[in-house]
């Protein structure tokens, strides 16, 4: 398994692409045919409607990451690729978590939600849905604490990042 190798590391790439049909297929196809692994991917437009931003988390050793970056750059529709691993960036992920919850457990869960600065977005007869934003670690920690109640469903966005200060991403 590639990810058991000791030089294997996760990298977060910010990729600016032309906002055109087929661009996602080009990127996905590139990863597939060259055997690169996408851990997470999020895509959205930027304030410039002709440009989309993809934040891609990939795993690999240095040489693999270098190849991924270069191969991405080679795609005609890719405008810019930056590897922000280890840089001063704000990284966020959003997650919706549905837990089973008897009415008497609601206040316990509400406490957890407050501690994590998450919020309750839906309450059912025996369920609660929580929305949480933060780093991957924070969301994982929240999930661990909610697990004993019974997690019914989870939806996570991929990670998005922006560089701090005046530096661009």
């Amino acid at each position: 398994m590639a990810n058991e190798r000791k030089d294997y590391e996760l990298h977060t790439l910010s990729v600016l692409v032309e906002n055109r049909p087929g661009v996602l297929a080009r990127i996905a196809g590139l990863f597939r045919r060259r055997g690169f692994n996408i851990e997470s991917l999020s895509v959205s437009t930027t304030d410039d409607p002709t440009v989309s931003r993809m934040t891609i988390v990939v795993g690999g050793d240095d040489a693999t990451i270098e190849q991924i970056t270069k191969q991405l750059n080679k795609l005609i529709d890719v405008i810019k690729v930056q590897d922000h691993t280890g840089e001063d960036v704000v990284e966020r992920e959003l997650s919706l978590i549905k837990v089973s919850c008897e009415p008497e457990q609601r206040s316990e869960i509400l406490n957890l939600v407050t501690i994590f600065r998450a919020s309750i977005v839906d309450v059912g007869a025996n369920t609660m849905m929580i929305e949480i934003t933060g780093t991957e670690d924070k969301i994982n920690a929240m999930l661990e604490l909610l697990r004993p109640y019974g997690i019914l469903e989870v939806a996570r966005t991929g990670k998005v990042i922006l560089a701090r200060g005046s530096k661009t991403t």
């Binding site: 049909p21 087929g22 297929a25 080009r26 196809g29 045919r33 795609l75 005609i76 529709d77």
Partner: peptide
């Protein structure tokens, strides 16, 4: 056609 030829062209257009 653009899907089929994506990996075997430098670039393609529809």
């Amino acid at each position: 056609t653009t899907g089929v030829t994506m990996p075997i062209t430098k670039h393609n257009f529809l």
